[in-house]
């Protein structure tokens, strides 16, 4: 599987990272180097092997479904690049 310029552009779009047009060929080449390395995995016989979901055989702990935190609006917004009137502000989303 070889990645071309268009695929690289599509991946960049999916990742929400702007990549200039003239940087795409070099990026595609890097992807191909890395994916070429990853292709080795095809040599492994994985028939009947379950994909790992947890590296330690422990069950996730459960807890009561209750509120344990909250009322921290100021702290939540303290690091926002643009916060107004108690909200995160972003460019207009809905026309």
């Amino acid at each position: 599987m070889s990645i071309d310029k268009d695929t690289a552009a599509r991946v960049a779009k999916l990742a929400r990272i702007r990549v200039a047009d003239d940087a795409l060929p070099a990026l595609a080449e890097e992807f191909n180097t890395i994916l070429g390395f990853i292709e080795q995995l095809n040599e492994v016989d994985v028939d009947g092997v379950e994909p790992m979901t947890s590296v330690t055989p422990q069950r996730l702990k459960r807890r009561e479904d209750v509120v344990t935190d909250g009322n921290q609006q100021e702290k939540v917004l303290a690091n926002a690049p643009d916060a107004r009137e108690g909200f995160f502000a972003v460019p207009k989303v809905v026309e």
């Binding site: 990645i3 690289a8 991946v11 960049a12 999916l14 990742a15 990272i17 990026l27 992807f31 890395i34 994916l35 990853i38 995995l41 095809n42 492994v44 994985v46 092997v49 379950e50 994909p51 790992m52 979901t53």
Partner: peptide, 23 residues
């Protein structure tokens, strides 16, 4: 981030991500 996006994208998830988890 982009490599990760690629191996998780539709059509490649099984070939890359699930295979890697089996390995």
């Amino acid at each position: 981030v982009m490599i990760g996006t690629y191996v998780l994208s539709a059509g490649f998830y099984d070939a890359y991500y699930n295979r890697a988890r089996k390995v």
